[in-house]
Lab assay of single mutants.
Amino acid sequence: MTEYKLVVVGAGGVGKSALTIQLIQNHFVDEYDPTIEDSYRKQVVIDGETCLLDILDTAGQEEYSAMRDQYMRTGEGFLCVFAINNTKSFEDIHHYREQIKRVKDSEDVPMVLVGNKCDLPSRTVDTKQAQDLARSYGIPFIETSAKTRQGVDDAFYTLVREIRKHKEKMSKDGKKKKKKSKTKCVIM
């Protein structure tokens, strides 16, 4: 069974824990209790493949930012979460993405942009803004509501699919490099 290491990042209060708990335990946590770091595991079937999701729910508070490099190193894919009623959390996505790329030393890291709290009427981040940002990053965008469960499975499952595509691409690139290195030079 394939294991996928997913990391949920975003500013404090955007609903990272609520999304994760909704996926794992099928219930909505409405009281806000700032996370330092929590880890969850769940076995699911995605596109006919049974897999184990190892999900790291991270601290959004700035005082825990020193811990970010460590979990970013171990993560295979990242859910970059903002709240649709919090423009600052949307603007912060850029910083999370840049930090992930720096730590992973790669421009090509599996990510999904997630606009959470889409059940709320007080939207300050337009869907088109988020779609445009995701398009500019070359990553999928999904709106979710941890409260109603809308888009929750889709967000995590899409990230797994992005990781699969990335692994497939990397193995193809690896095979191309191996083929090239088999060419021999004969000096007579």
Rank of each mutant, 00 (worst) to 15 (best):
R73Q: 10
A83I: 01
T124I: 08
L79N: 00
D69M: 03
T74S: 12
K104S: 13
N86F: 02
T124S: 12
K104Q: 13
R97S: 09
R123W: 10
E98G: 03
S65A: 07
T74D: 10
I84M: 14
E107W: 10
F82T: 06
S106F: 09
I84Q: 14
F82G: 12
A83C: 06
A66M: 06
D108V: 06
K117M: 15
N116S: 13
M111P: 00
V112Y: 03
N116P: 00
I100S: 02
F82L: 08
L79A: 05
I84V: 13
K104R: 14
T124K: 11
K101S: 08
S106V: 10
D69H: 07
D105S: 07
L120C: 12
D108C: 06
S122A: 09
G75N: 05
T74L: 14
A66Q: 10
D69A: 05
R123N: 12
A66S: 06
V114T: 02
D126V: 08
R68T: 15
T124P: 09
D126N: 08
K117I: 15
G75M: 12
Y64D: 12
V114M: 09
T74W: 15
S122W: 08
M67E: 02
R123D: 14
E76K: 04
V125H: 08
Y71G: 14
D108T: 06
F90N: 04
V109P: 06
Q70H: 05
V81P: 05
P121S: 13
C118S: 10
D108M: 07
D92A: 12
D69P: 03
Q70A: 01
M111G: 00
F78V: 07
N116D: 08
G75L: 07
G75Q: 10
S122E: 13
F90Y: 13
F82K: 02
M72T: 12
A83P: 13
M111N: 01
V112D: 00
K101Q: 09
C80F: 14
V112Q: 00
L120Q: 06
G75V: 13
V114D: 01
M72K: 02
V125K: 10
F90S: 05
P110K: 03
Y71C: 15
V112K: 00
S122K: 11
G115P: 03
Y64I: 14
N116F: 02
D126T: 09
D69S: 05
N116M: 15
P110F: 02
L113T: 04
Q70D: 04
R73T: 09
F82R: 00
V125R: 09
D119M: 02
V125Y: 11
Q70L: 02
D105A: 08
F78R: 01
M111S: 01
S65W: 04
G115S: 06
E98N: 05
I100F: 06
S122M: 11
D105G: 14
M67A: 02
M72A: 15
R123A: 13
N86T: 03
L113C: 11
H94R: 10
C118K: 06
